[in-house]
Design a protein around this nucleic acid. Structure first.
Lengths: 340, 340
DNA sequence: CTGAAAGCGCTAACAT
DNA sequence: ATGTTAGCGCTTTCAG
């Protein structure tokens, strides 16, 4: 009967079981260097037979290489980041790199903690949402000596590289279209924004552009927490009641926009005749709604793909750093809630 | 001018900068062992000043301890797993353990790969969705010698421990209520199920219970991919058209149920008078719908919390393993689409 | 309270 | 094609 002690197997175990030196076993298991077919076979058999799982900790320490990419995002509970993530995963799939996700809940202190934790594993790259970080986080990123891609946003100074859209521009474009369509009494609904810099920038771009056209936000309402769909409903009801002459509602995300849309349709209001609607993100969910909500695609998947490509490239060649800011173009989707 | 070479700092750097031995520096940075206040201060200052980030790889190799918990789930793109995850994260927060997420896309081969990858980092525990794994995955889990919690489901034999609900029972309870309410012509819609074992088990429990009451599914339809809301709409339209005398629709998840509900209300159908609806999961999204869709809460958050607690406990004491199967009770939420 | 030595399991670099 | 040696950066253990 073999040993009962549950001790993880080592290269040495495989070496002994196969009668091949540790070094050669290591080579076989990594497909590195030339090994005869016969030896290779012996080693592979022994490894599989024993159920050997290599110790990446030791491997990483010895080789000074870690195939992990730290991905730091604020949240998983809306559709936006999972989609970025899937772009990242897919792109990294054939590179040998592995994404590792950390969530910050939009809290700078938590971001700092998660970042520290992840950097202490010496990943091959960091993909992190946003351009605004605490001073300490910024310093860590800068000093880490590893490739950093800040994603989602391009309005600001990246530590290293960034991929995203200009949220100010997104806000501006939306405002322009709304004005062009002749709407005048505009209400805004969104999250409380102190911590969501991108929502804030969209709002800024939006109001500024309206101002230039001599239009001011007629009403606004902010929320936090709870079911976004339900919140959209509630806020819309409240706002319509409070400011009945509104002819347009701009929502900072699709979920609350969808809630608003459902509410207005139930009330029998004419959308977009009587009142127009638009939101932001372009989430797949909208496809199933009774009307197609006007929105702006945030290029989430593309952002993930591009960010991953940058990390992968930096780990391959010592290629010259080409662009440091990659701005994608958000696409306005008119849908059927914004008349033209 | 200090060195320009971007080399990660080591304990030695901190040791030199503070004039304290490496060993003592290590003690300070880990709050381990007694160190005089003065020395502690010197070390902390030096570390902060230099921006030292410890190398966990070396630390883990030396101490044979890794504060990571592998969490392996099929998907992030529906609301169910993010909620489990948040339960896990929150619970692990004060334990010093860190969740690391891997996604399998419901593919056994991918699960095997992700599991292997994660086990090679020697985590302190594994939380993995489902009780069905490939033979190789099963063997890896069993041989790993680390605590394993299989989550979501309890209908089967766990490798080590499991926390979840009985999906067969969930299906049965729903069927019982539907029959009790007097519905007779029942349609079913769901994902193609070969890979989603939990959906399959619910379906089995559902149909079996109907059969016992002498009722057979009158129509059924399966989908894969695409926007679930839109799919729910489409499938419902198709089914209602094909089998007009249906008086109840059971959906395998809330998202398609919501799509169906929206469709039927638009068509001016009387829900639940003319036709009743029910789905599964209890996602927050439903709160914002025009009707409250009947559903069954899958205890997602509680599952995450309990699983994390088990991993944490196993890492603390060598406490005797109490229960190995923890079955939570899914709660039926009648809402307003299932008449009583 | 502080330090010195040994070694975690693997791989880089150099033999052969 | 295969083996040998040294050491990655930290912590454990043991000595002061």
């Amino acid at each position: 009967m073999s040993s009962n002690i549950k001790r993880p197997l080592t290269l040495r175990d495989v070496s002994e079981a196969s009668g091949v030196s540790e070094m050669t076993v290591s080579r076989v298991l990594r497909n590195k260097g030339d090994v005869s077919a016969a030896t290779r076979q012996k080693v592979q058999d022994a490894a599989k037979q024993l159920g050997y799982v290599p110790n990446k900790i030791a491997g990483a320490l010895a080789s000074q290489r870690v195939n992990l990419v730290a991905v730091i995002i604020p949240s998983l509970s809306n559709m936006v980041f999972p989609e970025v993530l899937s772009g990242i995963s897919e792109t990294l799939e054939d590179t040998g790199l592995q994404p590792v996700v950390g969530v910050t809940d939009y809290m700078p202190e938590k971001e700092e903690k998660v970042l520290f934790e992840m950097l202490s594993w010496r990943p091959s790259g960091v993909i992190i949402a946003g351009l605004e970080h605490s001073e300490a986080s910024d310093a860590m990123l800068r000093r880490s000596g590893i490739p950093v891609v800040e994603i989602m946003d391009v309005d600001g100074e990246p530590v290293d590289t960034c991929v995203g859209i200009s949220h100010r521009r997104a806000g501006r474009i939306m405002a322009e279209e709304i004005i062009k369509a002749g709407y005048k009494r505009i209400g805004f609904m969104g999250t409380k924004m102190p911590l969501d810099h991108r929502a804030r920038k969209r709002f800024e771009g939006f109001t500024r552009t309206l101002a230039q056209a001599g239009v001011e936000i007629a009403d606004q309402e902010f929320y936090s927490g709870g079911s976004a769909l339900a919140k959209g409903r509630e806020m819309t009801a409240k706002m319509i009641d409070r400011t009945p002459d509104l002819d347009f509602l701009y929502y900072s995300n699709d979920m609350i926009g969808a809630g608003g849309l459902l509410y207005l349709l139930e009330k029998g209001m004419d959308v977009p005749g009587q009142i127009g609607l638009a939101a932001f993100n372009g989430v797949e969910l909208l496809d199933g709604l009774p009307r197609q909500l006007a929105t702006m695609d945030a290029c989430r998947r593309d952002i993930g793909i591009k960010a991953a490509q940058i990390i992968a490239a930096r780990n391959q060649d010592d290629a010259p750093v080409d662009e440091t800011v990659i701005a994608l173009s958000p696409v306005l989707q008119f849908g059927t809630t914004l008349r033209r």
